[in-house]
């Protein structure tokens, strides 16, 4: 690790700079992928958007002066990238959810308890199905507030709307979530 608190990740082909970039990617990749996946609801789209977010971030890294702010800054780019994607497409893709039912077990989970695996899969599918029923803005507000733990004011800033609107989205999303969860558990 560098003694300096500043990131110096300029792409100029230097091995050490590339190593730092790789470390930056490795540190944040899973978290960013999950944020985007929860917003867009499809693994393939989340993969593309995660890559896009990292490329944007690393190309604009001169804006990043503080390592401690790096994660926050990257999340902002990731959510903006996901939001832009939803705006362009105009709807939520629920196609990934069906494929998850038939997806083969990953190699890392082969040794898990089968019951626990089934339960986890059910929880995931339920979460994905319910998220798919929310409007994009409700889903975004819920993910940023309840999963990412951002304060409502910051969620409002990210979504370019007022705090009252965000509170309305969050309340609607939680109420719908509770209602739909009750139905799926029956």
């Amino acid at each position: 690790m560098s003694d300096s608190p500043h990131l110096d990740l300029q792409w100029q082909g230097s091995t050490s700079e590339q190593a730092r970039q790789n470390e930056f990617v490795q540190t944040h990749l899973r978290r960013v992928f999950l944020i985007i996946y929860r917003i867009v609801g499809d693994v393939a789209d989340a993969q593309d958007l995660t890559q896009e977010a990292f490329i944007k971030a690393l190309q604009r890294q001169d804006q990043l002066k503080d390592l401690e702010k790096a994660a926050h800054w990257l999340s902002r780019i990731a959510t903006n990238t996901a939001l832009d994607f939803l705006r362009r497409r105009g709807r939520y893709a629920a196609t990934g959810i069906d494929t998850l039912y038939d997806a083969p077990a990953s190699s890392s989970s082969e040794f898990d308890d089968p019951e626990a695996r089934v339960l986890r899969r059910e929880q995931h599918n339920r979460l994905s199905s319910i998220l798919a029923c929310l409007t994009p803005r409700e889903r975004m507000a819920l993910v940023l507030r309840d999963v990412e733990g951002l304060p409502a004011e910051e969620v409002a800033e990210r979504m370019s709307c007022g705090t009252a609107t965000v509170r309305s989205h969050i309340a609607n999303a939680r109420i719908k979530f509770k209602r739909l969860l009750g139905r799926t558990r029956r």
């Binding site: 590339q18 899973r30 990292f54 083969p104 695996r117 986890r120 309840d146 999963v147």
Partner: peptide, 27 residues
């Protein structure tokens, strides 16, 4: 429950290969 479940990878995703692919594409 939502916060906890959302932190886990979707079932069926092989993270190692997905991570490698994404890292190569980012580079």
């Amino acid at each position: 429950e939502t916060a906890e479940t959302a932190q886990e990878l979707p079932p069926g995703v092989d993270w190692q290969s997905l991570e490698m692919e994404m890292r190569a594409n980012i580079r």
